[in-house]
Design a protein around this nucleic acid. Structure first.
Lengths: 188, 188
DNA sequence: CCGCACATTGACTGATCGGTAAATGTTAGA
DNA sequence: TCTAACATTTACCGATCAGTCAATGTGCGG
């Protein structure tokens, strides 16, 4: 199997897991949905867990890349970018395929902190916080770390509730909350 | 089986699902962990899904009851109670058994909005929002509904991140964010 | 055209899934 | 003490779980 075929497999596995859940999607069904036979899959991944980890690495890269680029496209100024995070989020929520966050779901199914899947999810959130901190720093916030962590909390809460309630309403509320927190981080 | 035995079964099933996840815990293992044979379980619940729904109803009642009472014990004044939500949350995060929120995990595994388990999770969050709104109204907030929804977002985000990162740190950040949002809801 | 290397397959493993049925207690009224 | 009613257990159902293997392509250097 070529590298591009492997990437394609991981991409399709990602979609299957995202739509169906990790425990709920078996390897047989995965083979059917990806079009790659089970044996071929196991040529490249020793276990289901390794395949899941590969999908999470891909998702981490895709999501953070998308968010960063989208935020920068929406606002040139770093401080406005902090708010633009929540405009980008609103766009995501509006996609018909939106089904919460892959990493929240992964850590919901693999709860042990020592588990690689849980750890990978934690790392994804940490990298988001790093990115937020960078922007908060550039914007000149009093305590960029704290503001970044607060915005991350709002982002995660918004994702959870967008999955359960009216996502448009949630996106608006999250944006307003973020604005309030950002303003407070400059005025005080 | 008496009513109290049934309650005991649901309580133990709740703990098993909370610790292990819904798909991951099978009925055989559940029978072993609850001490109630599989056939006996199926005398009271037609399907695994019905048992899960029973655990969620119990959890909803337990959690909201606990939070309400704890918040009222921590602060007499409605406005202080809004902040006390996050002190109570901090206590919860500090419990060694803390493993995120049962309903976030349930909606992570049952993603379809039409699914009863998903709907029950959404309803739990809605009832929390109602309670928050009541307190915000009593406290005299400008827009009690909006403040309640903002605080709910912060609460859910805090739970998710407390499960992934340093829960003490997250609890502090969430409390401060909540304070900022509450103050803004009175000053403007 | 041959033969080797590698990719891919369907069929299979034992274990476990959710759920059921027949058999075996256990209890209580007559 | 006999028996009817109910609770509980053991054993089982077909399906699916993660993972494996022998067999069958398939492409390529000689």
């Amino acid at each position: 199997m070529s590298a591009s075929k492997r990437d394609e497999l991981v991409q399709r596995a990602l979609q299957a897991f995202y739509r169906g859940g990790f425990h709920a999607i078996g390897m047989d069904r995965l083979a059917k949905e990806t079009g790659v036979s089970k044996t071929a899959i196991y040529k490249h991944f020793r276990t289901k867990e390794e395949l899941i980890l590969a999908t999470l690495r891909l998702r981490d890269e895709q999501f953070r890349n998308w968010l960063m680029r989208r935020v920068e496209a929406l606002a040139p100024d770093p401080r406005d970018q902090l708010i633009a995070i929540f405009d980008a989020l609103a766009e995501w929520f509006d996609e018909p395929e939106f089904k919460s966050c892959m990493f929240i779901k992964a850590s919901s199914e693999y709860q042990d902190r020592a588990h690689p899947i849980h750890a990978t999810s934690a790392e994804h959130k940490r990298l988001l916080a790093v990115d937020f901190t960078e922007r908060a720093k550039k914007a000149g916030a009093k305590d960029p770390d704290k503001l970044a962590r607060e915005l991350l909390i709002v982002k995660e809460g918004a994702i959870v509730l967008a999955h359960l309630h009216d996502s448009r309403r949630v996106a608006k509320d999250a944006r307003q909350a973020a604005e309030t927190l950002i303003n407070a981080s400059f005025n005080n």
